[in-house]
C-alpha cells in the first residue's frame, strides 16, 4: 500500500492504495465521493468522468496512484455552493430520467464552458459525444446546455 495525497474538490485528502486500484473505485469506496458512476468500466460511456487538473478524464481508466499530488473536481465540488446555472436549467427542463449519466454530462459541460462560455449546438454535441444516456434521447440535455450558455443580450 502506498499513501497518496490529492486535492479533491478543494480539500486535501490522503488515502492508502494498491498500485492496481482504479481511481473510480477509490473515489467511491474509500473516499465516499459518489457522484462518478460506473457504467461501462472501459472508457466508452462517460458516467465516471471527473476533472483531473481541470480536464475531464474517465476515472475508470485511471489508476488512483497516478493522481498522487493532483487535483480532482467532481459534481460534489461543482455544487458546493448550490447548483450552478447549467444544473438549474437541467432541473427546470427535466433533462434527465434515471440520472445515471448526469454527473458525467455535468463534468463534460463544465469543461466545455470553461474554454468556450457560449458554445453552439455543434460544439455542445461534440463535447458531450462521449457521454451516453440510455433514457432521454439527449434532446433535453442538449437543450439545457444550450439554454444555460446562450449569450445574454443587453439593450
Amino acid at each position: 500500500m502506498k499513501k497518496i495525497t490529492l486535492k479533491i474538490n478543494g480539500e486535501l485528502r490522503s488515502v492508502y492504495v494498491e498500485p492496481e486500484e482504479i481511481l473510480l473505485d477509490v473515489l467511491r469506496e474509500k473516499l465516499g465521493v459518489k457522484s462518478p458512476k460506473c457504467g461501462c468500466d472501459r472508457g466508452d460511456c462517460g458516467a465516471c468522468a471527473v476533472l483531473l487538473n481541470g480536464r475531464s478524464v474517465r476515472s475508470c481508466l485511471v489508476l488512483a496512484i497516478e493522481t498522487d499530488g493532483q487535483k480532482i473536481v467532481t459534481v460534489e465540488g461543482i455544487s458546493k455552493d448550490g447548483l450552478n446555472k447549467v444544473q438549474n436549467t437541467m432541473l427546470d427542463k427535466n433533462a434527465f430520467q434515471c440520472g445515471f449519466c448526469a454527473p458525467g454530462m455535468i463534468i463534460s459541460t463544465t469543461e466545455l464552458i470553461e474554454k468556450n462560455p457560449h458554445p453552439n449546438l455543434e460544439e455542445i454535441k461534440e463535447a458531450l459525444s462521449g457521454n451516453l444516456c440510455r433514457c432521454t434521447g439527449y434532446l433535453p440535455i442538449l437543450e439545457s446546455v444550450q439554454e444555460a450558455t446562450k449569450e445574454e443580450h443587453h439593450e
Binding site: S56, V57, L61, S129
Partner: peptide
C-alpha cells in the same frame, strides 16, 4: 479519436 475524455489522456 473517441471523445474529449479519452483525447485528454
Amino acid at each position: 479519436v473517441a471523445s474529449v475524455g479519452i483525447r485528454n489522456r
